[in-house]
């Protein structure tokens, strides 16, 4: 029995199945978001150690932070796949992932600022983790800027893929340099975030929200991918057929 792994790597066949993916993923995202927020507001204690109700921003903050990092990993995965197998769809995947990743990095910083103001009394502190997130945002922006500034699609894809790859090699060093400006004594992070110490319901709500953001990313990236596919394949018969059918 043979299964053609590359079948869905053609934009045309992917486009065909993408609509149902978007429907399913956005449905899951909405349900999980409602459940997660309900759980987060109704089932969790009002006070977390010394913080009052406002700690609940973590139900957005933490999933957003995780997703922004995870999306960079997937972006690099698609970029490298594109460079190795020269599959157009992989490049399009990478291009579609970047804005969502950047959005989550921004959301992390934004919600973090609110949380910081309420619990530390400042909007921003040059704490290592905040700085890392800021730099991740910079790297996303550099990727998007490079992609957009190259007119030739193929060159844009390959150049930004290479940049993403270089970025992923540099990230550990950047992370280290920010966390340990003094190698003898690594800076204390945010606070030790040990998942075990966190109250069970908070954890449940947080993970539900994590899956909600994941499903959201899946839906929105697939949606963006559809637009990119149509734009790039506009010369082909099947793309023209789709546009004509819609009109």
């Amino acid at each position: 029995m043979s299964f053609n792994w590359f079948k869905y790597s053609s934009p045309a066949s992917f486009y065909g199945i993408s609509h149902s993916i978007i429907k399913a993923a956005s449905g899951i995202a909405i349900i999980l978001c409602i459940v997660g927020l309900y759980w987060g507001f109704a089932k969790t204690p009002d006070i977390l150690t010394d913080q009052k109700e406002y700690y609940r921003i973590l139900f957005i903050h933490v999933p957003a932070a995780w997703m922004s990092m995870w999306l960079y990993v997937t972006l690099v995965f698609w970029a490298v796949t594109g460079l190795i197998f020269n599959t157009r769809l992989s490049y399009m995947m990478a291009a579609a992932t970047a804005p969502t990743g950047a959005l989550f990095a921004f959301l992390t910083i934004w919600t973090g600022a609110f949380w910081g103001k309420t619990s530390w009394g400042v909007w921003w502190d040059w704490d290592p983790r905040m700085t890392s997130m800021l730099i991740l945002l910079f790297i996303y922006i550099g990727y998007i800027a490079l992609q957009n500034s190259i007119a030739d699609t193929r060159r844009a894809d390959r150049a930004s893929a290479l940049l993403a790859l270089v970025g992923v090699i540099c990230i550990p060093v950047i992370y280290l340099s920010i966390n340990c400006p003094d190698p003898y004594q690594c800076a204390a992070l945010h606070q030790q975030s040990s998942l075990k110490q966190i109250e069970k319901n908070i954890l449940i709500a947080m993970f539900i929200m994590l899956f909600a953001t994941w499903a959201y990313s899946f839906a929105i990236i697939t949606h963006r991918l559809r637009s990119i596919i149509l734009e790039r394949e506009k010369r082909t018969q099947w793309a023209q057929d789709i546009v004509r059918d819609k009109a």
Binding site: F138, A145, L146, I174, S177
Partner: peptide
């Protein structure tokens, strides 16, 4: 990466500065 681009010089800074942080 930016050789031959019209907006090359401004993009370079955006790309290279974060990588040079360490």
């Amino acid at each position: 990466l930016t050789t031959g681009l019209r907006s090359g010089s401004s993009i370079i800074a955006l790309i290279v500065l974060p990588l040079n942080i360490p």
